[in-house]
Simulated assay, not measured.
Amino acid sequence: MIDHKRSRLSHQSFWQRWKEDGDLEAKKQLIEHYLPLVDYVSSRMAVGLPKNVTKDDLVSNGAMGLIDAIEKFDYQRGLQFETYASWRIRGSIIDGLRQGDWVPRSVRDKAKKMEDAYTVLEQRNLRSATDEEVCDYLNITDKEFQQMLQEVAVSTICSLEDPIREEESETRLTLLVDDKAVNPESKVHETFLKETLMQGIDRLTPKERTVVSLFYYEDLSLSEIAEVMSLSPSRISQLHSKAILRLRAALSKQKDQLMHK
C-alpha cells in the first residue's frame, strides 16, 4: 500500500497545481500514483462475487471512483486522501454492480426473507435470533438455512454501506468532504443511524462481531479472516452474511421508526 506520510509530502505540489491551477498533467500524476488503491479495493471486493463478475469490471468502475475522488477532494482540509478515495472507489464499484444487476432476483428475495426473519424475531425477543429460531420462522431445515446463507453471501459482500443510507455513494461522504455547515436534521438522522448500527453490532454473536471488525475495520479479506479464526472460508462467508442481515434488519427498523415519527 501507499506510504501515507511520504505521499502527502511528495504530492502536495501536485495537489496545489491541480486544484489551484487546473494543471491536467498534475492530475494525471495523482491518478497514476493512487491507482494501487483501485487494485487493492477491487481485490477485496472480488471475494465472494459471482464468477461472471470479473476483476477487470471492478477495476474499471473503481478507476472512475478514483478520478471522481481526485476531482472533488479538498486537500487543504488536512484529511487523508487514501481513506476518502477508498470510499469513493468502493461506492463506484457498488454502483457499477447495481447497474449490471449482478445479483439474481431469487437471491435478493431470499436475502429479504432472512432479513425480515431477523427483524421480527429480534424485535419480539429483544435479543439476537438464533439459527434454530430463524429456521423455525422460515419453516426450513438447518441444511436449507446454511445453503441460503451461501447463496445470499454475494448480496451482502458489499452491503454494509447500503443500509446506512439508501442514496448514492456521494451522499455517504458529505460530512467528510465539504459542506461545513451541517444541516441539523441530517445531523440528527446521522446520529440515530450511528447509534442503531452500534446497537446492532453489540447484538451480533462474538464470531460475527469479529468477522465484521476484521473485514471492515482491519481491511482483511474473507480468506485472511478464515486463517486468523481457524475457520473455513465458507464458514466466514456465512458469519459475514448473518452479521450483515442482522445489521440491515436493525437499520431497517430504525428507518421505519424515523419515518413514522
Rank of each mutant, 00 (worst) to 15 (best):
residue 73 F to Q: 08
residue 73 F to I: 07
residue 74 D to I: 01
residue 74 D to E: 12
residue 75 Y to P: 11
residue 75 Y to S: 11
residue 75 Y to L: 02
residue 76 Q to A: 12
residue 76 Q to F: 12
residue 76 Q to C: 02
residue 80 Q to K: 11
residue 81 F to L: 08
residue 83 T to S: 15
residue 84 Y to M: 06
residue 85 A to C: 00
residue 85 A to I: 00
residue 85 A to D: 05
residue 87 W to K: 11
residue 89 I to V: 15
residue 91 G to E: 00
residue 91 G to S: 04
residue 93 I to V: 12
residue 94 I to Y: 03
residue 95 D to F: 10
residue 96 G to Q: 06
residue 96 G to T: 03
residue 97 L to T: 01
residue 98 R to H: 10
residue 98 R to M: 14
residue 99 Q to A: 14
residue 100 G to S: 12
residue 100 G to A: 12
residue 100 G to T: 07
residue 101 D to H: 10
residue 101 D to E: 10
residue 101 D to K: 14
residue 102 W to M: 07
residue 103 V to D: 08
residue 104 P to A: 00
residue 104 P to Y: 04
residue 105 R to M: 03
residue 105 R to T: 10
residue 105 R to C: 01
residue 106 S to I: 02
residue 107 V to F: 02
residue 107 V to C: 02
residue 107 V to E: 10
residue 109 D to W: 08
residue 110 K to I: 14
residue 112 K to I: 12
residue 113 K to H: 13
residue 114 M to K: 04
residue 114 M to A: 00
residue 114 M to Y: 09
residue 116 D to P: 01
residue 116 D to Y: 04
residue 117 A to W: 09
residue 118 Y to G: 02
residue 119 T to V: 04
residue 119 T to A: 06
residue 120 V to K: 12
residue 121 L to Q: 05
residue 121 L to V: 03
residue 122 E to I: 03
residue 123 Q to G: 11
residue 125 N to F: 04
residue 125 N to M: 07
residue 126 L to C: 11
residue 128 S to T: 04
residue 129 A to D: 00
residue 129 A to V: 01
residue 133 E to S: 10
residue 133 E to D: 14
residue 133 E to A: 10
residue 133 E to N: 07
residue 134 V to G: 09
residue 135 C to R: 12
residue 135 C to H: 03
residue 136 D to N: 15
residue 138 L to M: 11
residue 140 I to V: 13
residue 142 D to S: 01
residue 144 E to G: 04
residue 145 F to T: 01
residue 145 F to Q: 05
residue 145 F to M: 04
residue 145 F to K: 07
residue 145 F to W: 15
residue 146 Q to D: 02
residue 146 Q to G: 05
residue 151 E to Q: 15
residue 152 V to Y: 04
residue 152 V to R: 05
residue 153 A to I: 04
residue 153 A to V: 00
residue 153 A to Y: 11
residue 156 T to F: 02
residue 157 I to Q: 09
residue 157 I to D: 02
residue 158 C to E: 13
residue 158 C to D: 10
residue 158 C to K: 02
residue 159 S to F: 04
residue 160 L to A: 14
residue 161 E to Y: 15
residue 162 D to R: 05
residue 163 P to I: 06
residue 163 P to G: 09
residue 164 I to K: 08
residue 165 R to K: 14
residue 166 E to Y: 13
residue 167 E to K: 09
residue 167 E to G: 13
